[in-house]
Design a protein around this nucleic acid. Structure first.
Lengths: 343, 343
DNA sequence: CTGAAAGCGCTTACAG
DNA sequence: CTGAAAGCGCTTACAG
């Protein structure tokens, strides 16, 4: 349904006594029209409360002015992605581009041809590019490549090989920071929870391992198998850890949810955090500051991830053919209540 | 930037040897074209991989086919709203309409003229209507009314008077369920946390009060002042409760975050939940099942709220002038670990 | 049942 | 510096 008649270029042109071309020019290349006319046109625009119909403008120009924020393999957006979206929205808004939200689910092992993308991505001309967030696997990238639509992915949740059109956070350094913190607190027996088959856990583990060996300790194997549910991975890993009765005084989990899962197990078994075991997480999700005790964790710049994604995407859209330069964003440690000095 | 030449109506028309009008017809009113031609056109569509440019289609038709999901007064989307958005997206997708995300912040006491809306809402023709979520106040509605854009709001987070173009959850009944559960467990001294100046807490309190008085108990006053941060409200209320040393064996908080805030205070003071005090929350947020102990709470149908919003909005858009019928969605209790029988 | 044509609201060479 | 005109990719009366 159309809204009640709004002013169009024609109305403004008539009112200002110029052609519609001139109206369009004062809007898009004002320097090309002489001040007198320009002022007259602007006055009419004001008077009529005119604002250009973006849809018509975009049709005429040939691009859509909208990008898609695609969230994969999550029942809904949790805090990390909500903040990435937030950062993306703000950055996009500043560039006059709008972001539409879409989601999709697929199995890591599905054939690309079996992956069902949201309709928006299929409809031609509706979207200029896509930001891919959520937990992703290589098969999705194949589908995206076939679409010939520019896209950038949040790299620190991407399985498979690293790609250049992605925004990463410093996973390795984050792991190093976490381990160093624990080491500095006098912990010697630290275990890592996270499935190193997933590159992001792998990188966090690598940083962890680097700190451990720099400190002269032998580096313990990583614990946990990721099957889509990080909390469950934490629960399973902690259970296993307790069962094999290996000594440990601290754990570093490659994700806050894993840390929370582990803490839940510890508590059920009567182990106090941080008195009996210190725990460090990764991401600084909303749950990290809500938990009891509050979680010490590696914080990632979520809003900045979103903003970087739209900047990179914009470049990709504006300069087709030119390869993207991967972006790496800094992480830092937030010390809260779940870690303490080992007596 | 335009994408590499895609097929258009003209290409299809040429290939099928018909006019573009006919192509358009098989797309929009297939019954009006004779089967032979229709099949031929469809074959060409298939062959060329044609899909109509929605933007042009919408320009020609006169509506935008997109609605805006507006999140107010929240630094980012937390789980309740993420799920509302999720439900809205799915419902919208089924109706071929896309949803763009936007956010805005304003003070409850700002003059409507001072509220700054996201640009998308200002640009004419870009959006057909808006779904208003987040915590909202009457002044925003004034601005929205001036825009003459259809909108529907998530009513159970709206301050001020109830409105008809809104989707509510059964707050009163939820409160009743919560109190009944506690009563059934033998609790007599139950306190309510929630600022009754806010209609949603008020309704939850009303249900609570109804159950309490049906059980023959005197109904205690509500505790807490809401100033935008529910967790903080819970902390303050619980602190106050403990300080005035009033006896209580259970509390019902009008929101999960308030419940979590209260639980944090209890724990710091050495009060065990549920052994020393039972706690019930409201909403069933993500944090409710992550907390320790897991929170017993009143669950609201978040996805359904989102879906109902787009249905109502669609009606409003299609039938301008016709008033909306408010929708009320059911709530139910989820019993977890934070409540137990009073010995 | 189908086509030729006008129109949706803009932008942008092309002239002048 | 400005206008007349074509075009973006569709839809939809209006004829036939």
């Amino acid at each position: 349904m159309a809204r009640t008649a709004n002013a169009t270029v024609h109305d403004v042109a008539a009112d200002a006594n110029v052609s519609i071309a001139t109206v369009s020019r004062v809007l898009n290349e004002p320097w090309r029209v002489i001040p007198v006319t320009r002022d007259r046109v602007n006055a009419s625009i004001q008077k009529l409360g005119y604002s250009p119909n973006p849809r018509a403008r975009l049709l005429a120009r040939g691009d859509s002015g909208t990008i898609c924020f695609l969230l994969s393999n999550r029942p809904f957006m949790h805090s990390v992605h909500a903040r990435i979206l937030q950062g993306a929205t703000i950055e996009a808004d500043a560039r006059q581009i709008q972001v539409v939200y879409a989601h999709c689910s697929y199995l890591p092992e599905s054939a690309p041809s079996e992956i069902e993308l949201p309709r928006i991505l299929g409809a031609q001309g509706l979207i200029d590019g896509v930001i891919v967030a959520g937990a992703n696997y290589p098969n999705l990238l194949v589908v995206l490549d076939e679409l010939e639509l520019p896209y950038v992915v949040y790299g620190s949740n991407l399985a498979g090989e690293a790609i250049s059109n992605a925004v990463y956070v410093e996973d390795e350094r984050g792991g190093y920071l976490a381990a160093s913190h624990l080491l500095g607190l006098g912990h010697g027996k630290i275990r890592f929870i996270g499935d190193t088959a997933m590159p992001w856990y792998r990188r966090r583990y690598d940083g962890f391992a680097r700190a451990i060996s720099e400190a002269g300790f032998p580096c313990p194997a990583a614990l946990g198998k990721f099957e889509g549910d990080e909390f469950a991975m934490g629960v399973a890993a902690a259970t296993e850890l307790l069962e094999c009765r290996n000594k440990f005084t601290a754990i570093f989990a490659g994700g806050d949810m894993a840390a929370l899962g582990a803490m839940k197990v510890f508590r059920k078994r009567g182990l106090d955090v941080p008195d009996d075991a210190s725990v460090v997480g990764f991401n600084d999700e909303e749950g990290a500051s809500l938990s009891e005790p509050e979680l010490t964790t590696v914080c990632i710049p979520k809003e900045e991830v979103g903003a970087s994604c739209v900047r990179m995407l914009r470049d990709l859209i504006d300069h087709p053919g030119e390869p993207a330069e991967p972006v790496m964003l800094p992480t830092h440690l937030i010390v809260r209540e779940s870690t303490r000095r080992e007596p």
